[in-house]
Amino acid sequence: MDIQAYISSGILEAYLAGELNEQEMLEVDRVATEYNEVRIELDALRESLLKYAQVESKAPRQEVLDGALKSIQEIEKEKFFEVLDDEPEVRIQRVNIVPVWTIAATILLFLSLGFNYVFYSQFKNTKDQLAALQSDQTSLANRVSETNEQLQYAELRIAHFMSEDNIHIRMDGLDLAPESFANVFWNKKSNAVFISVDNLPEPPHGHQYQLWAIKPGVAPIDAGIFDHNQLVQELKIVRGNVEAFAVTLEKEGGSPIATVDKTFVKGFLKKS
């Protein structure tokens, strides 16, 4: 294509003047895209006409642009207000949503607090009851344990009494209390001594009964003081060649030496 001839043909001026139909204009655009000279020529022509229009007051009045810009501004303003118009709905929704949630949350909170209080009170009561029950149980367990111990002890004593190793000595009342009597069980192997107080008179205030083991040729040997109210009591261990057992009335706390004239009961071992 002869570009200079194309340019010189006046088609570019016709293009700018609006003389060409759209098809022809698009053809010029195509050529201008392909040939840089054509594009440059077109731009130069347009710039020249622009300058001419400015100088010769052929350009459209400024009011045309101002009017268009004003319309654009109004459209933008309308759109802005459309956005604002949408806003209240959102705001109302927000205003509505927030109190509903707040009220609901507050109600739930107070309900929760109320239930918490009730449940805590119940829990505390239950805890106290449980503690009381545990305490009862503990004391019961202690008692059971105590009773068990007592039972075991009783069983031991029964075993002791039933044992063949045990020697039974019946002590009969002497002149001071002819009605009285008591029994001694002496284990020859373990040397344990038990007394079974059966019928001894109430001792005077500040006095106590004391058991003695009597061996030949020696002073009576202390076998321990005992409570005359208690049926069976384990006393001191007694070893050796015992001839008899006797109970004397002594001052409270007992005496190292037997007060022989206050002998209430006395019994001799049977000769085997």
Partner: peptide, 18 residues
């Protein structure tokens, strides 16, 4: 909006003619 101002300045007179 600046596009409109540029169109007006650079093409306004040609478009008015058309």
């Amino acid at each position: 909006k600046e596009a409109i101002e540029l169109v007006f300045t650079h093409y306004g007179s040609l478009l008015l003619n058309i």
